[in-house]
Design a protein around this nucleic acid. Structure first.
Lengths: 120, 120
DNA sequence: GGAACACATGAAGACTCATTCATCTGTTCA
DNA sequence: TGAACAGATGAATGAGTCTTCATGTGTTCC
């Protein structure tokens, strides 16, 4: 085994080939997780549904900016918004979204990153 | 259980909090997986190391474009390049990169996506 | 040393995208 | 009906980024 105490979860998952057809879909979906704002939104929704305004406040975004990002996440099918009174309660659409989030954060955190970027 | 035949792999993974510190790192790393070109590069390297030129040919990119993306992936610590003769053989840096790839593709493929985007 | 191969790199151009500002729709309540 | 609240949306701006072109560095072999 590796250096961690956790057996790699990938063993439980059937590999999916990455061909020209689905690569665009995968890329588009992963792009939704590639910005701090949306990542914070999804991470917050992972702990439970929340009205849009409260959500925006908790992730420190302006209402408009948050709404724009929520529209994007909605169009990708990652979150759903349901009207309750004058609020719209947002939630993760699927368990796969939560799983994707967990796995992404887990693997990235356990990578020995270089991130020298422009430096070196 | 859900609709799939596979028990969610997330159960095997300790949750990592996503706070303001690491959210940028996660976002930056996930951005490396958010473009078709890099996704194809990583997917190809997942099957084994490969010299840069062959890699570029297999993913259908020009040498220069591929090299630019490889530099980006190198700076993020996702791939490593080792000189062998006049070639530079590239490979995934870590098992976590492979795991991240697998999980991402798996979850995205099993999402019921909307992707209406501008339409609807 | 010189030619050919393998790869890296800088600059430029087109493009995408996240945020802000202003405005508009929809809902509740008096 | 009108005011206040909750959210959505369009346009504009500014930053980031992917690709191409041209060139530069490093290596092998004659």
């Amino acid at each position: 085994m590796g250096h961690g105490a956790v057996s790699t979860a990938a063993t439980a998952v059937e590999r999916v080939r990455l061909d020209a057809d689905n690569v665009a879909k995968v890329a588009t979906t992963l792009q939704a997780l590639s910005t701090p704002s949306r990542l914070l939104i999804l991470a917050r929704l992972r702990e439970g549904p929340l009205p849009a305004t409260e959500l925006a406040a908790e992730v420190g975004m302006e209402q408009s900016a948050c709404s724009h990002q929520l529209r994007l996440l909605r169009n990708l099918g990652l979150v759903v918004g349901e009207r309750r009174g004058r609020s719209v309660v947002y939630a993760l659409h699927d368990d796969h979204v939560a799983g994707l989030l967990d796995q992404a954060v887990y693997h990235v955190e356990h990578l020995r990153l270089g991130i020298s970027d422009t430096a070196e």
